[in-house]
Simulated scan of single mutants.
Amino acid sequence: MAERILLIEDDPQLGAQIVDCLGRAGFEPTWWTEGRPLQPGDVAAYRLVILDLMLPGTHGMDMLRRMRDGSDVPVLILSARNDTADKVRALKLGADDYMTKPFWPEELVERVRARLRRPVMQRQGGVELGGLHVDLESREVRVQGEPVELTRVEFDLLAALARRPGAAVTRQWLVENVLDPEREGTERTLDVHVSRLRRKLGPGKYIETVWGIGYRLGGGEEA
């Protein structure tokens, strides 16, 4: 069965071109031509969302924020805005990739394929990535089959990144949602925990720094 892709793009010519390229690449695209308020489950049927930012109706950033309230579906942003602040804001809100217009639709298809090759962490269960296995329910971590003992904070930090492997998670979010704000809620403390977690996971680059944003779970390439 073809993988379903949701395209949200108001430009009729570009949208038709993208839909054609996605269809010829073996995907099953659905095309929305305007932004809309999202309800729980609206994007659950799709493997990936391609989202324009400047939309009639609901703005793309607002749609992205709403998606992240209840879904881990990968989101690839399309925008004519090349400003770094816009890119950083989209990534902080949970976007997985950002492409600026104009672009070749064939390049977009390859970005889609690359994103779909990465595992997507569901809100329950576990993830396996480059020899790393994280089980959320049992709170167990293994690297190359060997158990790794983590503290509560270290596991919660790893689990937060594992929920969206390959996507950046901001340092501010990690501080507010992983650390104890009464005892250790600073970005400097977060960096210390990341350093310790990296040492315990071994030489693979599982936790990557995304400069100016935060951290992400990578593929475990050798340092």
Rank of each mutant, 00 (worst) to 15 (best):
E222W: 07
I50N: 06
P37H: 13
A223V: 13
R68V: 07
R163M: 15
E110R: 13
D42E: 12
L132G: 04
L64H: 03
P105R: 03
R183F: 08
N177S: 11
V169Y: 00
D72K: 09
V109M: 05
G126F: 06
E34K: 11
A16Y: 01
L55Y: 02
L14K: 05
R163F: 13
N82H: 11
R111V: 05
N177C: 06
V127G: 08
R164A: 09
R113K: 15
V143S: 10
R111K: 12
A80M: 13
E208V: 15
P105C: 01
T170M: 00
L91V: 08
A162N: 07
E208Y: 08
L38N: 02
P74L: 03
R24K: 14
E140H: 12
S79D: 05
V19W: 01
L129V: 08
A80I: 14
D42M: 11
M61Q: 12
D11F: 03
G219P: 09
V148M: 06
E184W: 02
M67Q: 09
M63C: 03
L136S: 12
V175S: 08
R4S: 13
T100G: 05
D180Q: 08
D156Y: 04
Q13T: 15
E3Y: 01
M61K: 05
D20P: 00
A167H: 02
R47L: 01
E146M: 13
L51W: 01
V112G: 02
R123P: 11
L158W: 07
R89F: 11
E182L: 14
P102S: 15
R65Q: 14
L48W: 00
G131R: 03
E187N: 03
S71Q: 09
Q172Y: 07
V210K: 06
